[in-house]
């Protein structure tokens, strides 16, 4: 009893957080932390990239090697995104709709690319498609296709790394999709394809788009896997991050900064676009 009375007294005496100073302290700490850790790096990229003025920036960006590196990055990321959206949606649809042996294994495998270091992904692809392997010889002789140290290798590496993006975006939407709608469509005589096109597709389209675009933004910056599989041949397989790496190592900061501005700018526009799309869907 005595104890309880003492506790009560202590509680009454406890200072009421009128001004909530510690709340402001925590808030301030969190905001300053994010501004220093994240906003500052973005500011550094844009300010150092445009330090020499627009004409200096333009001179560095329009160098043939820089243009080619940016183009290789954008083209391989775009090809990857198209394949990823189609196959990722199909994988999510099959995983949600059908039962088949090995389904649990496949479901567990999907997140694997998030865990494996991308440099290790590159090594795996070298081991599989490397010059000495039987598979590389077969592809070269039969189809005249070179995977390693060529663009198909870059696309393959990006597909591996971005495999989970579309699947994990579309899967939950499909699970929540009202099953009565497609069933009603079947009952009314619609074909499977017609039902997919008119009922399932409109429901999952936003998830397909946002998953695909986030994968695209992620692919733009990829370095570890590409530096292993692409072979760093200027004008052919050199991507923008590999180009920036080379310029930083050589101490040519203006060239590195100019390409960084473009690369980060595109990634920012894409992610802001996805963010805006999701927000406007939530509110509209």
């Amino acid at each position: 009893m005595q104890n309880a009375a003492r506790l009560e007294q202590e509680a009454v005496n406890a200072p009421r957080p009128q001004l909530d100073l510690s709340g402001w302290g925590l808030r301030g700490t969190a905001i300053v932390y994010l501004l220093v850790m994240i906003a500052l790096p973005v500011f550094v990229v844009f300010s150092s990239g445009l330090q020499a003025g627009l004409s200096g920036f333009w001179d560095n960006v329009s160098h043939p090697h820089a243009v080619s590196a940016l183009r290789v990055t954008l083209v391989t990321a775009a090809i990857m995104t198209v394949i990823n959206v189609v196959m990722g949606t199909l994988t999510a649809y099959v995983l949600v709709t059908y039962r088949f042996p090995g389904k649990n294994v496949l479901d567990a495998l999907i997140d694997l690319p998030f865990a494996i270091p991308t440099l290790v992904t590159g090594i795996m692809l070298v081991l599989l498609y490397g010059p000495q392997t039987a598979l590389a010889g077969f592809l070269q002789d039969r189809f005249d296709v070179r995977v390693l140290y060529a663009r198909p290798g870059i696309v393959l590496a990006l597909l591996f790394i971005c495999y989970p993006f579309v699947i994990r975006a579309v899967q939950p939407v499909l699970v929540q999709l009202d099953e009565r709608q497609p069933e009603a469509a079947y009952t009314l005589g619609a074909s499977g394809w017609y039902t997919f096109r008119r009922i399932v597709f409109p429901a999952i389209r936003p998830a397909m788009l946002s998953g695909g675009m986030l994968g695209f933004a992620r692919a733009l910056g990829e370095f570890g896997a590409i530096v292993i599989v692409a072979g760093n041949i200027p004008l052919r397989t050199q991507t923008a991050p590999v180009y920036i790496y080379g310029k930083v190592e050589a101490g040519n900061m203006p060239a590195a900064s100019a390409v960084s501005v473009v690369l980060l700018g595109v990634a920012l526009i894409v992610t802001l676009g996805v963010d805006w799309m999701q927000r406007s869907r939530q509110h509209g």
């Binding site: 790096p41 986030l214 910056g221 990829e222 790496y245 900064s257 960084s260 690369l263 992610t271």
Partner: peptide, 14 residues
């Protein structure tokens, strides 16, 4: 979310 889309090479460059 920004660190997810900033190329690691650019992070090192900064």
């Amino acid at each position: 979310d920004l660190p997810f889309v900033m190329s690691p090479v650019i992070v090192g460059y900064v």
